[in-house]
Write a protein that binds this DNA or RNA. Structure first.
Lengths: 255, 255
DNA sequence: GCAAAAGTGTTTTTGCTACACCCATGC
DNA sequence: GCATGGGTGTAGCAAAAACACTTTTGC
C-alpha cells in the first residue's frame, strides 16, 4: 500500500514548559498571563508550537530561552562560552486529550526545566506578563485559605501538567543529583539542603544531610572556597560532581 | 491575534508500543514484520496513527488489542466481563526527531505495556508477521555471539524506544508492584521472583525474596490455593494486592 | 531414598535517625 | 558575650545480605 497523506489526520504539536525554581525557600513555577482566547487573562505554562523542522527538545529549549533567557546546560559537558546560568531540561509527558484545546486538535509534549533562582522573569516575545508563582498556590493545596489573586486554575490542562512536573521533580531528586540544578554553580551543603526542604516541603536534619551528601562519592566536589553568605560559620563551597545517580537514595521523610 | 490555522505546521501523530512479557525466563518484546516501505521486511514495534478524535491512551489500547487481543486491565477496578488476561499500559515518552520517518513529520507517543506470558502473538489486521523476541537480542547486547536472524536493527528509532521501555520496566518494578503484571492472575512467590530475575537479568536469593514480598503489607494476597506446577513442595498461590507502591523498594543487586 | 522447590531462623553488616557536642564567623 | 549556621561523634535501631536448616511434594 503506497503512502497516502489522506490516511492520517493532521495534528498541531506544541511544547509546554514546567519551569521550576526555588525562591525564598518555596518551590515556584514560571507562569505567563494569556493575552488571547481561549482562557484570556488566565495564567498558563509557557509554551508554543513546534516548528516544521525542529526537534521536540530543541523547541522546548527555544521556548525556555525566549521566556527566561536561560540556556540549557548539559551538565556533563558544559559549554565553555554558554550563558551564565544553566538549566536542566527533560521531557515530561505528552498530553493529547481531543478536547484539551477547544480550537483544534493539539498534542502537547510537556517538558520539565529546573533552574537556579533568577533575578526576575522577563517578558516573552509577545510581551506577555510572566511571573514566578509558588506551586503550593497554583496547585490549590492551600489556596482557599488566602483568598489569592491566582484567578483560579491555570488554563487548559496546565494544572495537571504542573502537578505531574512537580511530582517528577520531587521523586527524581531522591535518587539523582538533580537538586543541584536548582543551585548556583557553587553552593554550600546548607543551600542544597534548603532546596530539598523546599521541594519536598519537609524539614531535614542538617547534620545527617551533611554526612549523606558529602559521603556519597562523586556527588559533590569541593571548590576550596568558603562563604558566609548564609551567616554563621564559613561554609565550604561545592560544585556538582560527575555522579548523576545517588545510591543509596536520599530518603524523603513520611509526611 | 486571532486564531490562524496557517500559523502552525501539521504533524502526523502515532502511538508505538513496547509490549513486554517474560517467556522461558527471558524478557521478550513484541515485534512485527514491516510489509511496506520504508524499512520493508524489518522488524518494528507495533503501532499506528492516532485517530482524529481519539485520546492517546485509547489509541495505544486499541493497537494493543489489535496486535495481541489483550485488553487493558485497570488493576484497581478490574472490569468483571473483561478479557481473560489483563495488561498494564502506560505512556513512555514521545519521539519527534524531524528525520525519524523519511516520508513525513511524524511524532510518536510511545507506550509501555506489560503482559503475562501469552500463547502466541496473532497476526495484526494487516496480516503482518508478529513474534516475541528476547530483548537481549533486539538490543544487541549479545547479538554478535549468535549470528542471529534478527535482520539487524529495528526500523526507525525503535531500538531506542525499546531500550527506553525496558529501562522503565526495570526501574519501575523496584518500587512498585508492576512485576505482577507479568504474572497470571494467580501466581507463586517463586514465579514472581523469576519475573524479577528475567527482567533484571540477575539471580536473587529465594529466601530473602520470599520474606521481602510476603512481609510487605498489601503487596500479595494469599488466595488459599496451592500449586506444584513448578515441582517440589506445593507453593501458596497469591493475587496482586491493592498496594501499588513498594516501600521500602526491592533492591536491584549491582551488576 | 533422592531431587527440587518452598519456606523459616539466625547472624552479620550496612545505613539511617536522633541527638550531644564543638567550631568559626558577625554583631 | 551571644546568635547563627557549619560540621563531627556516637548510640540505637531497622532492614538487607548471607547462609544453615526444615518441609512437602514428584519420581
Amino acid at each position: 500500500m503506497p503512502y497516502d497523506p489522506s490516511a492520517f489526520p493532521p495534528f498541531a504539536v506544541t511544547v509546554d514548559l514546567v519551569v521550576l525554581t526555588v525562591r525564598r525557600d518555596a518551590l515556584c513555577a514560571l507562569v505567563v498571563r494569556r493575552g488571547e482566547q481561549p482562557y484570556q487573562g488566565r495564567w498558563a505554562l509557557p509554551g508554543g508550537f513546534v516548528r516544521a523542522d525542529e526537534d521536540l527538545t530543541a523547541a522546548a529549549a527555544r521556548e525556555l530561552a525566549e521566556e527566561t533567557g536561560l540556556c540549557v546546560h548539559d551538565r556533563h559537558s558544559p559549554a565553555p562560552g554558554s550563558s551564565p546560568t544553566g538549566a536542566h531540561l527533560e521531557q515530561l509527558a505528552t498530553y493529547g486529550d481531543p478536547k484539551r484545546d477547544p480550537r483544534m486538535r493539539v498534542v502537547s509534549v510537556a517538558h520539565l526545566a529546573l533552574a537556579p533562582d533568577l533575578p526576575a522573569p522577563r517578558a516573552g516575545g509577545d510581551a506577555n506578563q510572566a511571573r514566578w508563582a509558588p506551586v503550593g498556590l497554583l496547585l490549590g493545596k492551600e489556596a482557599d485559605a488566602h483568598g489569592e489573586d491566582q484567578s483560579g486554575q491555570l488554563a487548559f490542562d496546565h494544572t495537571q501538567i504542573l502537578a505531574d512536573g512537580v511530582e517528577r521533580a520531587r521523586s527524581k531528586i531522591e535518587y539523582s543529583s538533580l537538586a543541584t540544578a536548582f543551585c548556583p554553580p557553587e553552593f554550600t551543603v546548607g543551600e542544597l539542603r534548603r532546596v530539598y526542604e523546599a521541594v519536598w516541603g519537609v524539614a531535614l536534619d542538617p547534620r545527617n544531610f551533611h554526612r549523606k551528601v558529602t559521603g556519597t562519592p562523586g556527588f559533590l566536589v569541593p571548590t576550596g572556597g568558603t562563604t558566609t553568605r548564609q551567616g554563621g560559620r564559613p561554609a565550604q563551597l561545592f560544585r556538582a560532581g560527575g555522579a548523576t545517580l545517588l545510591n543509596p537514595p536520599m530518603l524523603r521523610p513520611e509526611v
